[in-house]
Design a protein around this nucleic acid. Sequence first.
DNA 1: TATGAATGAGTATTCATTCAT
DNA 2: TATGAATGAATACTCATTCAT
Lengths: 205, 205, 205, 205
Amino acid sequence: MAKKGARTKAAEEKRKCILEAAREVFSDNGLEGASLRAVASHAGYTPAALYFHFDSKEDLYAEVLAQSLKKLATCVQESLDGKTNAEDRLFTAAMAFFDFYRRNPRDLDLGFYLFRGGMKPKGLGKDRDFALNSALEKALTPISEEAQKLGVNKDRANLLMVDCFAHATGLLLLLHTGRIRMFNASAVEQMECYINDKIELLKIR
Amino acid sequence: MAKKGARTKAAEEKRKCILEAAREVFSDNGLEGASLRAVASHAGYTPAALYFHFDSKEDLYAEVLAQSLKKLATCVQESLDGKTNAEDRLFTAAMAFFDFYRRNPRDLDLGFYLFRGGMKPKGLGKDRDFALNSALEKALTPISEEAQKLGVNKDRANLLMVDCFAHATGLLLLLHTGRIRMFNASAVEQMECYINDKIELLKIR
Amino acid sequence: MAKKGARTKAAEEKRKCILEAAREVFSDNGLEGASLRAVASHAGYTPAALYFHFDSKEDLYAEVLAQSLKKLATCVQESLDGKTNAEDRLFTAAMAFFDFYRRNPRDLDLGFYLFRGGMKPKGLGKDRDFALNSALEKALTPISEEAQKLGVNKDRANLLMVDCFAHATGLLLLLHTGRIRMFNASAVEQMECYINDKIELLKIR
Amino acid sequence: MAKKGARTKAAEEKRKCILEAAREVFSDNGLEGASLRAVASHAGYTPAALYFHFDSKEDLYAEVLAQSLKKLATCVQESLDGKTNAEDRLFTAAMAFFDFYRRNPRDLDLGFYLFRGGMKPKGLGKDRDFALNSALEKALTPISEEAQKLGVNKDRANLLMVDCFAHATGLLLLLHTGRIRMFNASAVEQMECYINDKIELLKIR
DNA sequence: TATGAATGAGTATTCATTCAT
DNA sequence: TATGAATGAATACTCATTCAT
């Protein structure tokens, strides 16, 4: 009902304004803690008005998340600009992924809700789920691609990508919850170390 | 924590029954998403009845979580029974941690809610938070201890433990959300591989 | 106080309707004893609907009380219209105060809840408390003013006003609880008698 | 069910203990704010235990109130000990009534709930209501009696008693809610003044 | 006599959502 | 496009009371 295909420029502006408000509110209160009312008043609207632009709270959430993932992919891509050495590019891509979430903890939260069933009642719908997954994959593929350039076959390159994803995610979790300090460790250093070890092992084998 | 010291056997049974119901509901919906009503009706009780056994929703949640962490620590400890070789023990402890959450996804969910800010607004109170953190640490320390037996200094052993924790966590996240299949990967194999690589690197250096 | 400045006429009507319902329910049960549900259903609304017109139960109560006091003050003022003799005006003002509450027992109940500690724990907030007190004082001051015109100094005039307030209140309490009948007395006559005695004493001294 | 007529001495003790607890709790939290649970735990009992001694919360309240009124009557009686002059006795009795409630504000609250319909749902029942009213009257009658000794006929003596009751009540209300300070007045002085005026007028006529 | 356990009705308030205007 | 008004279901938690033991 909301998205009729052809949207006027003005409407697009308003959408963006609402999305921005949503991002902030979600960031401040977490996802479950945020209310449509809060988003609306943050954006200078009545709650009812949002329903012209988004079908539901979940719809709104999904778009916020999509934007986040797009920004992530862009971030990773841009980090590679001007870099040609494959080893360097692998390292850079993985760290860009890691750094994006390190610097934007709320985007991490956003992502977690995608992974977990956070939004059970109706779910986000298959189409949307697929689109979001693709966006995430797109942000990660450079890692796999560079590994292949280094002579690793496609399957193993994929596994390496998954490993990087997993390690980054785990460290970020520890970082954003203060646990890493408890252990006297530095998330960045450990991430760097992890990738370097991986690359070293790649060369040995 | 909730009630008197001497509890009858029957009462203990009922408590357990409620805790079990709570475990299911909390792990499905998280602390904020879960309602006392749901827990109560799941356990076959009236909401008001729960207050006889637990002081509040958070009290109930904390106890569920504490039990889960205790089970985890026990699991890790038992996995080491009869093993004497340090390398073997390190591997076993890390995999026991990983396997516990692999086989008990609900407990992983439970744990995530502790880590993530989901409950921030009020938190569980410092005492409880500290106790829960200690319980978690207790489950992980064997990893550090065995690394030290292998000649690694205490600080680096600690980092290694953190790394294992992070990697396991990341993989479990991928596993329980079906993402790992998307990538054609096996969580168990990748965890095993990760630890073995770590051990190998330990020996090289 | 609850909502925006510009209110439509229809909205104003509904507000009044709710306030009227609240008046009845509050005066029957007091602030603590009355439930929003009761007010709502009395007004033909859902509880949630009230929150569109008033911020909270206490907000609603305060507004009901404020209206009542305003009506009281108006009543006293109007009773003096066209009267010029100070003695007459003093008598009239005091009796107008008394008669207002005699004829509107619900308003008396409302007022009692303000006076009594019934609501202490949270109170209505200082601003509101002050406003309500002022409204009450405004209704009583004519008594003091007329006494001063009769040559009484300001302090003594004030005390006289307080005395009238106290006596009226006491008699009204006896009246509305049926106790006065028990004693074979007439509240009106005793109030009249009391003021006349006061005036007489004023002249003697 | 509770009061079987013949009560053991031990039971009587316990009753007293509970009543005392109830008095305190009612005093601290007001009547509506006080819960049976609070009374029970204050008395070192379980809520359920109270039901062996009292039929209901209202029953408990009624007994607390009855005790209060008995104490009031005693207070008034004792104030007259050794006094023989009728004028003196009238003044003393009225002031004793006033002073009792001045010094025990919570007993005043207790009393108000009797007058107002505070306890609507079931009421206190006719018998009890009558008994409580009698107790109150008993505390006031000395005023009427002494007036008669001064030559006033019974009816007028009664009215005088009612007037004293009303005036005292009104002043106490102002006193206990801090209003009297607002007016720069002293409740005691105004009460004394009121009775003296009354006596003076008695003599003039 | 007393308790532990349980209940059902009750509390104010918030929420996402809808709909007439 | 946007709003004010309204709703019904939900929230955690408290209460007086009951009853088997």
